[in-house]
Nucleic acid binder design. Structure first.
Lengths: 163, 163
DNA sequence: CCTGCGAATGTTATAATGTTTCAAATATCG
DNA sequence: CGATATTTGAAACATTATAACATTCGCAGG
């Protein structure tokens, strides 16, 4: 079987989800934004998963809980959560993942393991600098950066180094 | 009207398309890969556009030329072209653009202007190094890098600096 | 030449992802 | 309470991508 260890050591995942939720509540309060039950539940579902979750995965979960939900329900919640930096969209996967650095200024850099599917978010300050420098040489003004690295995480690398 | 100058100075675009096609033919020959008429036509269409083209844009063009084509026709051609590094997929746009550095080893970094839609591909060697370094600190083994920067190109920045 | 085999294409259907629209409900503030 | 703006419900639709299977094409060996 191939489901590999959680990222990246065993931990009390419920606790880290709860912490993320608490932080989200604080951030929303600061911004006078309303973290409604649906929005909070979507955020929780995304955090509960170690792997990025597709919008329709979230939808299926909501539906199975008896929540009468349609695609716009989920996309609206996700838009809201992205707006306040609580989740990120992973473009190369069409999926969403909880933001590890919510509230902190950062350029998200995502390490996506193609074997186990787990994603690790890095702040990558020097990477960010290098990108801005490169853009600067073309007099380009960056606004949003999509940086997603697919490959093998440490665990999967030793298990299956051969492609 | 907002269609802004070509990237990034006036040039004989037909000539640069022809050069890209010639280069593609050479690369395919080297690899004993068959650049069939459909594949070549798809590559040409993508190169003719300064902006990334969606698969269904390509499809519409083929259809309008009398080519009996369906989605798989286009996606197969695009898969082939990507495989040999002749086009890139821009994940954040669900669209495709000609590779500026076909045949050369490089990490594509794309500067996408949100105003005019033009895309500039950079090699970004230092960026690539920084990314590999950052991944290295997590013992992550990168395989493919998606790096897409959205913002304002020089032309559009002076026109509309205020968002 | 022709025949057999793998690569490439045609064709139909369907899956997966995301958006528009408009009406109803709910929160917030004076 | 009443006006207003935000949020949600609900149905339909649009866009992007793939699955499955039949057919044709290119080419090497007999």
């Amino acid at each position: 079987m191939s489901t590999r260890a959680l990222p990246y050591r065993p931990h009390n995942h419920d606790a880290c989800v709860q912490q993320a939720l608490a932080s989200a509540r604080a951030i929303c309060q600061q911004h006078k934004a309303r973290l409604t039950p649906t929005r909070e539940r979507v955020l929780e579902l995304i955090w509960q998963s170690h792997k990025p979750l597709g919008a329709y995965d979230v939808l299926a979960e909501l539906t199975s809980e008896g929540h009468s939900a349609a695609p716009p329900t989920v996309y609206r919640a996700l838009d809201f959560l992205q707006q306040y930096g609580l989740v990120h969209r992973i473009a190369s996967l069409n999926a969403f993942t909880g933001c590890t650095y919510a509230g902190e200024q950062h350029t998200g850099m995502f390490l996506i393991c193609r074997a186990c599917g787990n994603v690790l978010e890095l702040r990558g300050i020097e990477v960010s600098t290098a990108i801005h420098n490169a853009a600067g040489t073309e007099a380009f003004h960056p606004e949003t950066i999509t940086l997603e690295v697919s490959g093998l995480c440490p665990g999967c690398k030793t298990e299956a180094p051969h492609e």
